[in-house]
């Protein structure tokens, strides 16, 4: 399991760069993970990251697009605008969760 240093914090990640131990995650780390994806986190980003965290706590899975829309109240367009080119994968990575496993 490779270790990587982001924002001066050393964490364990899998081959795709997803955190393997969520307890290592912090909001400060998220800023660094986002920067690596070319994203500067704003309140709108945090609303999505916080929803993923809340939903993960409940379902033990990263929410899919439809759940983001219906339960999180986050429109598809907004997700793609805030996390371009692979919104859910990027948001899940920045939020410190595993790679999403849903097809939709």
């Amino acid at each position: 399991m490779p270790d990587t240093t982001i924002n001066g914090i050393t964490v364990s990640v899998d081959a795709d760069g997803y955190l393997t131990d969520h307890s290592q995650w912090s909001r400060e780390l998220a800023e660094g993970l986002a920067a690596a994806e070319g994203i500067t986190l704003t309140d709108a980003h945090w609303k999505i990251l916080d929803f993923i965290a809340a939903d993960y706590a409940e379902k033990s899975a990263v929410p899919g697009m439809r759940r983001m829309n219906k339960v999180g109240g986050i429109p598809t367009k907004e997700l793609y605008a805030l996390f371009p080119d692979g919104p859910i994968k990027k948001a899940a990575k920045i939020a410190g969760f595993p790679k999403p496993t849903s097809c939709v």
Binding site: M65, Y80, P84, D85, G86, P87, I88, K89, C103, V104
Partner: peptide, 11 residues
Amino acid sequence: LIMANGARMEG
């Protein structure tokens, strides 16, 4: 539809 949506989700 699933393939098209899946494609967009992968960028």
